[in-house]
């Protein structure tokens, strides 16, 4: 069976963020994801599209889930995988980030999947390597594949994001998921509302394409989708909220708020969830929750991204994929 992919849509050499992509590019990635989702359902979910190519995970910050998702995507495309993981602080003194990147590139990687706890690091890495770079999360900046898989999951449920009202709830200030999703959701025609205590909102965001609310109860009934962000426990130690208990009370999705949520609304979370903080146990199993779909779709979406960056048209034509 042939996967009729045609010419891979133009994506620049790297995927560093949603910033800088066009609506057409986002839509073509989501379309391509459909084809790869089909492969995931086969008895042997593997195609030779990236045979002989090497995908290196370069993780300066721990993230088992994202790394596994990318590596599963790479293996399903028959790429070889390399893993480099080190806490960013454990880079030996005297070795610069650039040195590290040059060494990893010299192992022959075609694409580097980069995760770092500081904004802009994936972009810097892309300046020091000939390989393609995918940003798998850079500090509080962007996490484009998460946003794309979220868009894909919403589109799967609703056909389109056009006109949807999506609320993003929680620690927007420190969230790369929020930044990427604000850009992606609005690019695809959705209306975005940020819902958080003032301390968890970034400063000076008057020009962002969003509405802002400090009270979830005021806006929850208007939402077509409620996107809950993970609440890091250290935030309350840093004095951003009085306690996780108060946060859960005011911004957590509990049974009472679920009642207020429209019966067609969707519940999303990038995982892993803090049950009892941003979401209660009974809500994560609510029929409106599409949290597990997000995880499943992550692999297909990342296959599409890797294929777009590395897969050459000629190869895909010759190979029975």
């Amino acid at each position: 069976m042939s996967l009729d992919i045609g010419t891979p849509p133009m994506l620049s050499k790297h995927l560093l963020g949603i910033e800088g992509t066009t609506r057409e590019q986002l839509e073509s990635i989501l379309e391509l994801t459909d084809r790869f989702a089909e492969i995931g359902k086969r008895p042997i979910p593997k195609v030779p599209a990236l045979r002989g190519r090497t995908v290196a995970s370069v993780f300066f910050e721990d993230s088992t889930r994202t790394r596994l998702s990318f590596e599963a995507a790479a293996r399903r495309l028959s790429a070889d995988t390399l893993t480099f993981s080190a806490g960013s602080s454990s880079l030996s003194k005297g070795e610069s980030l650039r040195d590290t990147v040059e060494v990893i590139s010299s192992y022959g990687a075609d694409v580097l999947i980069v995760r770092h706890n500081m904004a802009g690091t994936a972009k810097r890495v892309s300046e020091w390597t000939d390989a393609s770079v995918v940003n798998a999360g850079d500090g509080c900046h962007e996490h484009p594949t998460q946003a794309l898989l979220d868009c894909y999951t919403l589109k799967q449920q609703r056909g389109s994001l056009e006109g949807m009202s999506i609320g993003i709830v929680g620690d927007i200030r420190h969230s790369r998921v929020a930044r990427s999703n604000i850009l992606a959701f609005s690019s695809l025609g959705a209306k975005v509302t940020l819902i958080a205590p003032q301390t968890l909102l970034p400063s000076s965001i008057e020009k962002w394409p969003v509405d802002v609310s400090n009270v979830l109860d005021d806006v929850i009934s208007d939402l077509d989708a409620c996107y809950l962000l993970r609440m890091q426990s250290e935030r309350h130690r840093k004095g951003l909220v009085p306690s996780l208990r108060e946060y859960a009370k005011d911004f957590g999705l509990n049974a009472r708020r679920c009642e207020m949520l429209s019966k067609d609304a969707l519940i999303l979370h990038p995982g892993p969830t803090n049950q009892g903080v941003e979401i209660t146990a009974e809500v994560s199993t609510d029929s409106r929750s599409i949290i597990l779909d997000q995880v499943t779709n992550g692999v297909s979406l990342r296959m599409a991204v890797l294929f777009m960056l590395l897969g050459q048209y000629e190869t895909s034509q010759q190979d029975e994929v």
Binding site: M118, G120, D138, C140, R179, S203, S204
Partner: peptide, 15 residues
Amino acid sequence: HEGEWSSFLGIPGQP
């Protein structure tokens, strides 16, 4: 500097 740019870039700012 904490402001429009730091929020946009995701770099923690100082006011």
